[in-house]
């Protein structure tokens, strides 16, 4: 991997994070209504219920340097955010925003990672099969139906699955990440199974909604690869069809798919946030929903920032892995 490529990707990562922070800051200050002022007045009105509210308000004023010039406020904000000091939550009051997010994030990442890997793998194989002449008839009929079905967005699919499998015949739980009462740290097999059971429907919504996208992308790439001369050569050499399909066809058609994955992660993450809302799944999407309903502005900002950070990190990792599967990239 050349240094230029590495540095360029790293720079993109930092620009993304800095853009997200700056947008957060500008919006918080430029929008009429002054959310920070609103948070402070919200704290004030709850003054009776919350102990030490005067101190908290004072700490907010100091935290954001509200009496300082705007660029000092910006630097203070950037510094705090980079240290993951995202403020105090209102809904989970004594808890900090960071602590609440740290509790919720593993759920989101676990669900997102598992579902995206499954959707990507299945969708790519499906798409490759569609471009392959020897594909069985049945697959040719079923696959397009599945692809059309997956043009329905995550959130709507989640609601449909929720009704069809959880409300109506109650085969699956209505929501949540695991059965209530199963707290405690030690990971038992029963607990893992329970988490998988609760994650099935949310995961299935993400897989179903993603399948078509990957299948279509793969079909397009595969059609191009199958037209290449080296494929004709491989056939002439008498290689087995299975080998040609996987090692010659899919192996090369996969490259644009990985680029697509990096480009669409943001959209996928947005969709899965909504799936969490539909299923009361205890990830950051549900945290966000709670925060929005309670106007917990620091929490909203914090979750959005962490969402951007998560996706940017994933894209960076993909970018750094990419030269391993396509050495041409780093040499350009």
């Amino acid at each position: 991997m050349t240094w230029a490529y590495f540095l360029q990707r790293l720079a993109l990562f930092f620009v993304v994070v800095l853009t997200a922070m700056t947008a957060n800051f500008i919006l918080a200050h430029a929008v009429p209504g002054d959310p920070i002022g609103a948070v402070i007045s919200q704290m004030t009105t709850r003054g009776g219920a919350v102990e030490n509210s005067a101190e908290i308000i004072a700490s907010y004023r100091e935290r954001f340097g509200l009496d300082e010039p705007i660029w000092v406020q910006y630097l203070v904000y950037v510094w705090n955010t980079l240290r993951f000091d995202l403020g105090t939550s209102i809904i989970y009051f004594p808890q900090s925003v960071t602590a609440a997010i740290v509790n919720a994030l593993p759920w989101t990442i676990g669900l997102l990672l598992a579902a995206t890997v499954i959707a990507f793998t299945l969708g790519s194989i499906l798409g490759a099969l569609l471009a392959w002449a020897a594909t069985p008839r049945l697959a040719r009929v079923l696959a397009p139906l599945l692809i059309v079905f997956s043009s329905i967005p995550y959130y709507l699919l989640a609601l449909i699955l929720l009704y069809v499998f959880a409300v109506w015949p109650n085969w699956f739980p209505l929501g949540g990440g695991m059965a209530s009462g199963t707290t405690g740290d030690p990971m038992s097999i029963a607990k893992v199974l329970d988490i998988a059971y609760h994650g099935t429907l949310p995961g299935l919504s993400i897989v179903l909604a993603g399948l078509g996208f990957w299948a279509l992308g793969m079909r397009g790439a595969m059609v191009n690869v199958l037209g290449e001369d080296y494929l004709t050569l491989a056939e002439a050499e008498g290689l087995s069809p299975r080998r040609i399909f996987f090692a010659y066809g899919m192996r090369n058609a996969l490259l644009p798919q990985v680029t697509n994955l990096a480009l669409s992660l943001g959209t996928i993450a947005s969709g899965s946030v909504l799936v969490e809302v539909a299923f009361n799944y205890p990830g950051i999407g549900f945290l966000l929903y709670d925060a929005l309903r309670a106007s917990d502005y620091f929490m909203i900002q914090g979750v959005c920032f962490v969402l951007v950070l998560t996706v940017a990190t994933a894209v960076l990792v993909l970018d750094l892995i990419y030269p391993l599967i396509d050495p041409r990239i780093a040499r350009k």
């Binding site: 993109l12 947008a23 992660l265 943001g266 993450a269 947005s270 940017a312």
Partner: peptide, 8 residues
């Protein structure tokens, strides 16, 4: 493109 649209 990297920033999840929903976040903004």
């Amino acid at each position: 493109l990297t920033i999840p649209p929903l976040a903004v």
